[in-house]
Design a protein around this nucleic acid. Sequence first.
DNA 1: GACATATTATATCAAATGATATCTATCGAG
DNA 2: CTCGATAGATATCATTTGATATAATATGTC
Lengths: 201, 201
Amino acid sequence: MQPLTERQRKVLDFITSNLDTNGCPPTLREISSHIATKGTATAIAHLEALERKGYIVRRSGSRGIAIPGRTTIPVSVPIVGTIRAGIPEPTIEDLQGYCSIDPNWLKGVDCYLLKVKGDSMIDAHILDGDLALIRPQPTADNGEIVVAMIDGEATLKRFYRESGHIRLQPENSSMKPIIIKDGEADTVIAGKLLRTIRSYE
Amino acid sequence: MQPLTERQRKVLDFITSNLDTNGCPPTLREISSHIATKGTATAIAHLEALERKGYIVRRSGSRGIAIPGRTTIPVSVPIVGTIRAGIPEPTIEDLQGYCSIDPNWLKGVDCYLLKVKGDSMIDAHILDGDLALIRPQPTADNGEIVVAMIDGEATLKRFYRESGHIRLQPENSSMKPIIIKDGEADTVIAGKLLRTIRSYE
DNA sequence: GACATATTATATCAAATGATATCTATCGAG
DNA sequence: CTCGATAGATATCATTTGATATAATATGTC
């Protein structure tokens, strides 16, 4: 990458600093003010130099500066309390917030965090209130834990495909497995459990 | 968090989507156009509702929308297998990698992820191999789960301060509590458990 | 000396932008 | 019925903003 001049470096640093603190690139005049120049022409000249050297990408419109390679995606994942099945893309019912997740935990697609309700998986050490990171998918491998839509509720169950049916096994000795015969319901499995997260506060 | 209406959620989703793809919040007119309304008044009304419910923060200026908790700075936290106590700042023994963590999970200080060894907390549903997010601190409140240095090993225990001693209680019926008389050892507690994370892959 | 690059200043524009005011309509709670 | 919350339309304003044109200075290269 071509080296930057002192002024160009200062402008670039200001842009990244602005992105960090405001979540937004600066305007031309904010840049001008920061490098103590008057008017916008100088700032534009610096931006053009930065773009020519490949440090930034500009687009039209206000604050149209982006830094390539800069993870615009610290991957914000929605936290939901309920979902309505329907693959692909389960409909999010009540959004409870967002959470930054390590991109390595996700596997490409639109994952979400489901707040676990009930104790159906307590023997698998998943508790009421835990957050379950879910990847939407319509089926799973034997023994994996999935989100199943049962009576309109999204609950976690262990998945078993057996001859002629699917068995959804709660990990709670006081609960019985749910058998879904082939063709009986098609959108039962909403996704697969990738991770669980528990808070102690 | 207060629930959102359908329209409000659509606006919020559009803002996060814009942040992900453009690295920039949308303008009022971009929002208006996306929800197919004319003029800016409706979009402003929605933003006001979102701000009132705590989903966004607004500041003056163009694209003055921010989503609290959403940081462009993915906070990188070390994953460790062992630590050596010594407050402040336990010494990291074997670094196993790094992991991006939502800044909201941290509480200011240098937290780290400790890979849980053994089943001493299995009755609290913390398993061997789970990741424990730890905040370094030399003591804790009664009933909280802490990292204790016992025989040079970092293990999780439940903390109880009782008359003349500290009791470190494993959550495993086959294990006995550890009593540490006052003044007997000073650097037993290395930190407090904030969160646990389990992977299913 | 001629030329390119970097740097800055001044002045000006059209478009984009946030904000406000006014009005209408729906829906559910009290 | 009234009130509040939600939702929307229309119109208007003062700023902000990106962009352009023009000019000037300095530095290093060929």
